[in-house]
Design a protein around this nucleic acid. Structure first.
Lengths: 252, 252
DNA sequence: AGATGGTAAGTAAGTACTTACTTTCAATAG
DNA sequence: CTATTGAAAGTAAGTACTTACTTACCATCT
């Protein structure tokens, strides 16, 4: 369906920066997408009319249906577009790659936390969109889930597992720790951007939140070097290796 | 439907337990409410038509509007009804009162966690309803927030503050700890009931979840008796009091 | 001139809500 | 022990308006 009329017969580059009243198809398509994202985020799929979208985009309703066969297709295109393109995951991977390499636990988790919090804050629209989609049972929700959330669990989960092998973290199911950590962060985001936008309950910066949540998690899952209460996890890991080398390097 | 000429002329005593085709006003009102709760929870306010509600209740559409002036009023009546009646908060307060009294940290937090998780599980409908309402910006969302969530922050927050004074927990803003804790639990609930109903990522019982999250939180916020890393919180609290007496009584 | 960006003015199927009317039923009067 | 009555429970068939989506027709670029 994607038409691409550029350079049909002329070898020139199309004037990209020109704000013409009449747009190229691709341009218009993207503009409609952007406008629709904002509206769907505010009012949900059913709460947004094609008329509104058209008006907000400054075109007639028929144009919408020239670019997207149905309202549903427009919606899917958005979810598709955002779920693939906005790889918040890549940012995170790149951002903490160094910390993972050097086993700087604090930097790893604080980095992930801060990236997520900031990402959510600057893209509240998408969070709302996803929430609406999830509630409405839209299938693409699961695509997003599989593409982003599962990988996050893998990423953090395998890091934790590695650090457990090294004796830095206590024995437990890594996924539980990941859920706890993501829970703190995502719940905090949802609170700030959806439920309590005035922050009447708790008003802290993203940096502070990332630091504090990381602190709680790390202390919560670290292997204790002191008065070890071994009662609940029966076995102590076999290879009691480089405890000292992994002593934690929070120099940052 | 089944006609049942109950004691038509017999002296008074209205037959309360009889399932007549024709209902008393109050009865019908409640039935409509119940039906509407379920439908609004599934499909949201805008996604549910008054026609559907009427059909599901087995009456004509006009009946809906005899009991509720507008669709909006019906919606508000539901939120009102649920937010007031279902005081999940009281259950929690009563449930952990003893543990709070005896300063059994583990029992306090595990109790709160388990109550919340089970409450969410058996009333998924209301969770969905609230989510829809929050996304749609319905005013009654904030009523619920103020009536339930704020009190939860007060309850747990003041408990934590007390235990900090006793030297059991490290110095930090109690609300942050509460947010972290509620974050783990509520996020876990939302995951299970909304995003990942098949529990493909993490499948644990509510008891297990409550135990593990409590473990992480308590270890995460407890005052350390060992190699104290004082670098990040500059001041050590002035009244270095009964550290020993509050040594933690996790005997349960 | 012919393809492409754009529109005005539809249409059929909903939507919330009303109106005018019928049925049920318990408390009374005869 | 009926018969009457009147209010409340119920309905069928609307109304006025909105919705997603179409059709037939311009306008403007190579």
């Amino acid at each position: 369906m994607s038409k691409q009329p550029i350079a049909s017969n002329s070898p020139f580059v199309p004037p990209v920066g020109v704000p013409a009243a009449r747009m190229a198809a691709e341009e218009r398509r993207l503009q409609i997408l952007r406008v629709a994202i904002s509206l769907f985020a505010q009012k949900g799929f059913r709460g947004t009319t094609t008329k509104e979208i058209a008006h907000a985009a400054g075109v007639s309703e028929a144009i919408i249906f020239r670019h997207f066969a149905t309202k549903e297709e427009l919606y899917s295109a958005i979810l598709d577009h955002k779920a693939c393109a906005s790889g918040g995951l890549d940012d995170i991977c790149n951002g903490v790659a160094g910390a993972v390499e050097s086993k700087d636990d604090r930097a790893v988790f604080e980095g992930v936390a801060l990236t997520l919090l900031e990402h959510h804050e600057e893209d509240t629209e998408f969070m709302r969109l996803l929430s609406h989609a999830a509630l409405e049972g839209h299938e693409l929700t699961q695509m997003f889930w599989q593409r982003n959330v599962l990988q996050m669990y893998d990423l953090l989960g395998s890091y934790i597992r590695e650090r457990q092998r090294e004796g830095a973290f206590r024995q437990m199911e890594p996924k539980v720790a990941v859920r706890a950590f993501l829970g703190m962060i995502i719940h905090h985001s949802v609170n700030n951007n959806l439920w309590d936008q005035k922050r009447s309950v708790l008003d802290i910066t993203n940096e502070e939140a990332a630091r504090q949540f990381t602190e709680i998690l790390l202390k919560g899952i670290e292997a204790r070097t002191d008065t070890a209460r071994t009662q609940h996890t029966g076995r102590r890991f076999a290879a009691g290796v480089q405890r000292t080398t992994a002593k934690k390097k929070q120099t940052k």
